[in-house]
Every structure is written in C-alpha cells, then in structure tokens.
Design a protein around this nucleic acid. Structure first.
Lengths: 189, 189
DNA sequence: TGCCCAGAAGCAACGGATTTGCTTTAAGGT
DNA sequence: ACCTTAAAGCAAATCCGTTGCTTCTGGGCA
C-alpha cells in the first residue's frame, strides 16, 4: 500500500510526516532499541493513541519507515552493457543491503508486515531496477534473461545470505552470481 | 547457540523444557497472538521474571521455539539419484516452509534474533540436508555441485519468494530450479 | 458562502506487561 | 558435608498498549 493513502496537505499527511521524521531522528539519537511509541509520539507532537490507531504497533510503523528507506533513489547507472550494468547494480545492492543499517531495515520491513505488502514492495523495488537494466540491454539488441530469472539467480541468493548467512558474502560473490547467470543462458526464459 | 547451553538434568534444563512445552501447548490453545509472557510463565510454573531474564522478551523466546520446530526431523529420502533426491527434497522444503505455519515459524525465528544465530541455524539445517543428498550422490559416483551452489540456486530462491513474493510459487517452480541447476553445470564449483 | 458529516486526533483512565532490587534455592565442585 | 555461584522466586514500581468518549479538521453539498 503502504498503510497511508492520504491526500497531501491534510492533517493526516502532516501527522504522518511528523511521525516518520520523529522515527528517523530518534533512531539516530537513541538507537533502534531505544525506540518506543510514546517516545516517538512525544517527539512528533502527537498522542500515542494516534500512532496505535494508525499503525497498530511499533513494528508496523517501523516497517513502513523501513520500506521508505529501502526505496532506490536513482535508476541504475548505464555502463554500456548488460553484464557491467548488472554487475554494478548487484554490487551496489549488496553494499546497501548487507550493511548493518540495511539489514536492520530489511528485518523491520519484514517483521511488522502482517499481509506481506511491505515485503512485496521491497521485492518490487529490486525487480523494477533489474527491469530497467534488462530493458535497456534489450534496446541495445542484447540477449537478456527474464526479470524472474535474474531475481532467482542474483537477487534471491544475495538476500538469502544477507538474512540467513552473512558470513562469506562479498562483492566477488555478487559478481560471480551475475557471471554465472549470463554465461549459462543469456536468454533463459 | 541457541541461547541455552545447560547440562541436562539441572534446574535450568527443567525450566527451559517446561517453558518450551508451555509455549507449544498455549500456541495450540490460544493461538499465536494470544501468547504473553505471564501466560506462558503461569503454564510453565515459573515466574515471568525468570523468562524475561533468560530470554529477554517474548520475541526471543518464540524465536528459540521456532528454530526447534524448523529442525528437520528426518534425513532426506533416498530416491536413487541426485536429481530425484534433490527434487523431492526441494518440493518438501517448499511445502513445509511456504505453509502458513512454516512462514510463521520463519518469521518468528528471524524476529527475535538480534545476533542472527537463529537464522544461521535455520540455514544450517537446510545446508545439512542438502549435504546429505550430495554426499550420497557422490558416493554413487555422480557428479555433484557444491553445497553452496545448491543453496544459491535452490534454497535461496525458494526462501526469498516465500518471504518476499509468495505469489506464483509452487512445486513446479521448485522442480524447475533443481532441473536448471543440474542441466547447466553438474559440477559447478 | 456557509453548514454538515465522516474521519482522524486528543484525552484520560484502566489493565496488564516489563523491569528491577533483593532474597532464596539448588547444582556442582572442593 | 560445606561453599560458591548461577539461576529462580518474589514484590513493588514503572511504563506500554488499549479503549471509550470528546473534540477538531477539512472536504462536500446545498
């Protein structure tokens, strides 16, 4: 969704903005574990019940904020070829996601997400970025795999290891995944 | 670890066992959302502060219990060949993990897991199962990929989709992942 | 333009969860 | 059999989360 579908300018929008801002400020000040709903409410100039009514609980609020932070802020760079584009993107993706902050956001996004929509949004961000790269490559006349194939062979392994097996995960591994994908079957599905 | 490394027979071990049992019983009786630390403590015959001191909070306790439930209860079946073994295992893995209960346990396991050790344990369970299959195949003289390769190409895509994109995930997809892995490069790494 | 209405926020009180200092118990080692 | 130490029990105080009710805001309609 996410949970907010309000017109800009209204009171709801102001409340949402100030709450989100409060979360970010306080996270920087007291750390992730020091966050509580009453604390956030106070900083945002709102009563706790407002937050509980709109977001349900702290986990869901943090999930919303986390998804916002996981949104890519730029389209993937153009390096002139599919392999270099994908490789560069995968390295950057890993860099951002595998950092302590990135992992925390991913966890938050997954955790306070009863219906899975926030997780779906994260996945969509990655898929969109990949799609841009693939479309660009197709425009150059290159043979490209499908988005789903790239998700399975590059995005999923990286994300799985970030969440479950952080050890031994580095840029070389990301490069290897891309290389393996492209050498194996450039037009897979 | 998990969080308990106590000798069997001691008081600590008894407390842990009765608390874990209480969690399972109560989860069946009142449902996942009805669980509270005081409720569990009462059923287990301990005081709430005992649970808070040992596990920290409800999330971490549930994480420990979830990991226990995610432990495979049998070694993978032997179907006489690598491809059929892996395919059957992947299908069963998907079946168990993608079910509502499986997803809930995975979420719980990740949720109350500050240091990632419980997530690591889950991943190790899968890797161990895969390793059994690969070792068996190697014993037959078959060419086998490495465990890490199977994790990247089969386990990770399944888990990623379970967590982030449940739609369009079925046994056929699991079979496809295995087939693709083995046809592409039977000795990958 | 000004009146209404629905949705959202504020307020306040209650119930229960969490924390914490101190005491007591029990396992294991000497 | 004693002693040490880690863990459990106990109880009080605090704080979080929930809820019914009131008040306010802003957009639609006459």
């Amino acid at each position: 969704m996410s949970r907010q579908m309000v017109r800009p300018g209204g009171r709801s929008a102001r409340v949402q903005a100030s709450v989100h801002t409060a979360v970010r400020e306080l996270e920087a000040e007291v750390g992730r574990d020091g966050l509580t709903v009453p604390l956030i409410a106070q900083r945002a100039g709102v009563t706790p019940s407002t937050i509980y009514r709109r977001w349900g609980d702290l986990a869901q609020l943090l999930s919303d904020v986390a998804v916002e932070r996981l949104r890519p802020d730029a389209t993937p760079q153009d390096h002139g070829g599919l392999e270099s584009d994908l490789t560069a993107w995968a390295e950057q993706f890993l860099d951002e996601m595998a950092s302590p902050a990135g992992r925390a956001y991913i966890r938050d996004a997954l955790l306070g997400d009863p219906d899975g929509s926030n997780a779906g949004q994260c996945s969509a961000y990655a898929a969109d970025q990949v799609d841009v790269i693939l479309t660009r490559a197709a425009g150059r006349g290159e043979d490209t795999p499908g988005v789903e194939t790239v998700v399975d062979h590059v995005v999923a392994p990286l994300m799985y290891r970030i969440l479950f097996r952080p050890a031994g995960l580095d840029a070389a591994h990301a490069r290897g995944l891309v290389a393996e994908l492209l050498e194996g079957d450039a037009a897979g599905k």
